[in-house]
């Protein structure tokens, strides 16, 4: 890093104005876990870092009858440890607990994870299966877009100069309500911690009283330039009972829908195989949760293999 200055805005408006004025020369920083590496290795060379951490009102998790809202400055570690989220969106908690290390999760924010737009990022698929809506502040005020529209390509978002992601709003069943929903996030990695997802899979399932699927969503990471929502899952599952054959079929369709690359973390062909393997498991675990056949608050094994004990 050479001669980077730090600007500390005291209001959101000030931050937006500063970023709008400086364009590419200014980069927002929150936890810094991505920005600091990017500047050190020269991937970006801003003149200004705009420290958002002092901005009030952008941190915290709130619930209502329809779901939850997470401020962009909320730490990944807070998401991982949040008991309310654990019941409403186990997928999000499962995604949070495998992101980096405790130290990185203590620093990193959900806004930073989303805006860095890494194709293998953990948070996006978990939020996408909860109908995430991104709230964005900019020179012209606040606008909201479906979260999927935030991602344009590796490292690129649809944010305009001066725009800041401030919040993500998600749908989730209230644990005290009669409706039954469950979600799950699984991934494939080389190491069992401190690794990037070779493939990440998030699934959510809602069922009615007869255990018939009334809603289903599926999202993948690391298998396309952007986090990928597999919309067809809804058509394939809603109105049906979940069967192994059906989840396998969804896995097959998802594997076809994605467009992975070959790199040092595996070939494209391998990644499709992993999608086909993890999708049925994620759907099944989400369904077990929706149908109250899973211990409350218990997180799934990282790759979803439910091995029997000896």
């Amino acid at each position: 890093m050479a001669n980077i200055d730090v600007f500390v805005p005291s209001t959101l408006e000030e931050a937006v104005a500063f970023l709008a004025h400086h364009g590419d020369r200014a980069i927002p920083i929150a936890g810094g876990t991505d920005v600091m590496i990017d500047t050190r290795i020269g991937r970006i060379s801003p003149e200004w870092l705009v420290d958002l951490r002092a901005l009030s009102g952008l941190s915290g998790i709130e619930y209502d009858a329809n779901g939850f809202r997470i401020g962009a400055l909320t730490r990944i570690r807070s998401i991982e440890l949040d008991q309310g989220l654990r019941q409403r969106s186990t997928a999000l908690v499962e995604a949070a607990r495998v992101l980096g290390s405790v130290q990185v999760r203590t620093m990193a924010t959900i806004g930073g994870n989303l805006c860095h737009a890494t194709p293998s990022a953990e948070m996006p698929p978990a939020l996408l299966v909860h109908h995430g809506i991104a709230e964005i502040a900019g020179p012209d005020g606040i606008r909201s877009i479906p979260l999927g529209q935030l991602f344009v390509g590796p490292g690129h978002t649809s944010l305009e100069p001066g725009e800041i992601l401030v919040r993500v709003t998600c749908k989730a069943a209230n644990p005290s309500s009669a409706s039954s929903a469950g979600s799950c996030y699984l991934r494939q990695t080389v190491r069992w911690a401190m690794d990037l997802a070779g493939v990440g899979v998030a699934a959510s399932i809602e069922v009615d009283e007869a255990k018939v699927v009334s809603g289903a969503k599926l999202a993948l990471s690391a298998v396309a330039p952007v986090p990928l929502e597999v919309d067809v899952v809804s058509d394939m599952l809603v109105g049906k009972e979940l069967t192994p054959q059906l989840t396998k079929e969804v896995g097959r369709v998802a594997a076809e829908a994605c467009s992975p690359i070959s790199d040092v973390r595996g070939t494209a062909e391998y990644r499709r195989q992993v999608v086909a393997a993890l999708v049925p498991r994620a759907l099944y675990i989400a369904w077990l949760r929706a149908t109250q056949n899973w211990p409350v608050g218990k997180l799934a094994p990282i790759n979803g293999v439910l091995s029997e004990e000896e």
């Binding site: 494939q188 990695t189 069992w192 391998y270 195989q273 992993v274 086909a276 393997a277 993890l278 790759n303 293999v305 091995s307």
Partner: peptide, 11 residues
């Protein structure tokens, strides 16, 4: 070890 034959992950 326990091998996940579908992903190749080895525990």
């Amino acid at each position: 070890v326990e091998v996940d034959p579908e992903t190749g992950m080895v525990k």
